[in-house]
Amino acid sequence: MEVDAFRRLFPLRFHERHLLESIRPDGRPLGRARDTTIALGAVASANGSALAKIGCTTMLAAVKLEVMTPKAESPDEGCIVIDFHMPPICSPLVRPGRPAEAAPVITKQLTDIILSSGMIDLKELSLVSGKAAWMAYLDIYCLDADGALFDAALLSAVAAFSHLQIPVVSLNDNGRIVLLSEENSGAMWEKEPVNKEKRKLKLDTLPFSLTCVLHKNYILADPSAEEESIMETYLTVVLDSSMQLVSLNKPGGPGLAQTSAIQDCVALTIQRVKELQKILNEAISDMEVD
């Protein structure tokens, strides 16, 4: 029987034959993630944006800043709203008008992780205490869904925030915040700019994640969509740069996870965090050189 036909008809046996030799169908060893690239500044009209690719899974994240009045209980804090979209182009399973099941779940997980990891101090998003603060809208679009969606989404979100530049604004007479464009910055300074120059957010610790699939006693790091659909038990570990556990998510699935398996996954994640940190730093320094 041809290889392709065998792969379609008996996918589990096909993958298990590979696992016996400690390799996966695309040639990777079990613990290695796919090639990852990050490109910052993909969307020119947004305040911060990034395009992250893990293997074929592609995510485009963009941050747009708008002004809002802060809540009464926290007059010094801005707000972040995260939304994850899976448009119909990304996968044959998504139909227009019927949103993917995974989308709201990933949105909620991303929101929890970004807010609880302390990556961004909301006080940095404040403009005029009690009157105006930034609302950061983070929109992440999945352009190609090929497994490990959460990892790619988190990576693109973190990269977009690293690239974010807060524009210079000032308070005009009506009490509204107005963008100070480059032309009149030298000419007239009737209105004091609220923030001195375009600045970047100070990010404390960046969270990075790795999804692993557990099958019998094999642990496969960074599964593709095919592997995820066949071996349905997956475990996502999110660590931040100081190796604290931000989230460990194993949402059920047909297999059980032993403590030793969890420890192995955490070890794989620690390696992956170092790799991702390096890739992100390279991307940031490339941007600054330009």
Binding site: L65, E66, V67, M68, V81, M135, P167, I177, L179
Partner: peptide
Amino acid sequence: ISNTPATYTPSP
């Protein structure tokens, strides 16, 4: 945050 507050963009 069940109802997001109204926001406006500062650009002209």
